[in-house]
């Protein structure tokens, strides 16, 4: 287990390093002069020089990369060009909306998907199965931002149960804050729950046809007992993979959904930063999101080993 964990940790570090290089190259090196990119083609040469100086763009690429990484490691993400405030502070604020939203959606999606998938698999071919499969088929196909708009139309504009957008703020109390995250979380969770339920079902059906389930049945376990005691844990391995991958889709989805609901999260910050050409903010925010995805996938790989003794032995 230790060896396995160490190996994964090394691969985590390598992934992070390569990802940071890719982001750095894409945003600071590929476009040529980021300062010109930020100020537009008509900028004066002395303004450009001043900006380059301010952003620390005068060093060699290597110096700039290492100071960016070094800064991030010590919590200094640079200063926003438009807001003149430390990027770390901005990210910290926005994270308090985006992270709870992602977790809220992930929890919701798992709580819907697991029972639905298990139910469908255990009653394979029944009306229940066909219903779950039909609903999830639509859930997978529905664009989440459109679903969000429809929910706004129904629950905010017509029924007035929720506000159409904005964030109540954590100061307004936990429930008020969670309430303003509920529609966005549902919009994010629905497609993910549909995918997860389908994966859960098919993985469980595959496992149920394994020889060892037949062995368990020969011992006198009922079909239900064989499913819960033997098939389910084995079926979890592909499901975990999907949960890990979904985190990156949740992050991506959250960026769009925040726009539908005017939530002041990371996603909206990134779009504002793009439109104001605030590259420092874009660079650090993207790095933060990629960091999140890679760390979650590391956690998933550790979870594999907890489920499967064959991996622990490595």
């Amino acid at each position: 287990m230790l060896r396995y964990t160490l190996k994964r940790l090394v691969s985590l570090a390598i992934s992070l390093a390569i990802a940071s290089v890719v982001i750095f190259l894409a945003i600071e090196i590929l476009p040529g002069d980021p300062a010109a990119n930020m100020l537009g083609v008509n900028a004066q040469e002395d303004t450009l020089a001043a900006l380059r100086d301010q952003l620390g763009l005068n060093g060699t690429p290597w110096e700039r990369y290492s100071s960016w990484i070094g800064g991030m490691l010590t919590g200094d993400f640079g200063t926003s060009y438009t807001y003149r405030t430390p990027v770390a502070e901005m990210l910290g604020e926005r994270l308090w909306i985006s992270l709870p939203l992602a977790l809220y959606a992930l929890t919701m999606s798992t709580l819907i998907a697991f029972p639905a998938g298990i139910w469908a698999a255990s009653k394979r071919g029944s009306v229940a199965d066909v219903t779950v499969m039909g609903v999830t088929q639509i859930g997978v196909a529905i664009p989440n931002f459109w679903f969000a708009m429809l929910m706004v139309l129904v629950f905010a504009i017509n029924l007035r149960w929720f506000s159409a957008g904005g964030f109540a703020g954590w100061d307004a109390g936990f429930f008020a804050a969670m309430k303003s995250l509920t529609l966005p979380a549902i919009a994010l969770a629905l497609p993910q729950a549909s995918i997860l339920a389908r994966v859960m079902r098919s993985s469980l059906l595959d496992t149920l046809s394994e020889d060892f389930v037949r062995t368990a049945r020969a011992k006198g376990l009922t079909r239900r007992q064989a499913l819960w005691r033997h098939a389910l844990r084995n079926a979890l391995i592909p499901v975990l993979t999907i949960i890990g991958m979904q985190f990156s889709f949740l992050i991506a989805g959250a960026i769009i959904i925040e726009n539908v609901f005017f939530l002041p999260g990371l996603g909206r910050m990134i779009f504002q930063a793009i439109s104001s050409r605030d590259l420092i903010v874009v660079e650090s925010a993207v790095m933060l999101l990629v960091f999140g995805v890679i760390v979650v996938n590391f956690a998933v790989e550790i979870a594999y080993a907890l489920v499967d003794p064959r991996l622990r032995a490595r």
Binding site: S15, V22, I27, S248, R277, V282
Partner: peptide, 23 residues
């Protein structure tokens, strides 16, 4: 395969954001 894993860490939206930010 490791390069593949790495690309999975960049949802297409993030790639689009990076491209749009620069081009």
């Amino acid at each position: 395969m490791r390069a593949n894993d790495l690309v999975f860490a960049f949802p297409s939206l993030l790639i689009a954001i990076m491209i749009t930010a620069t081009f």
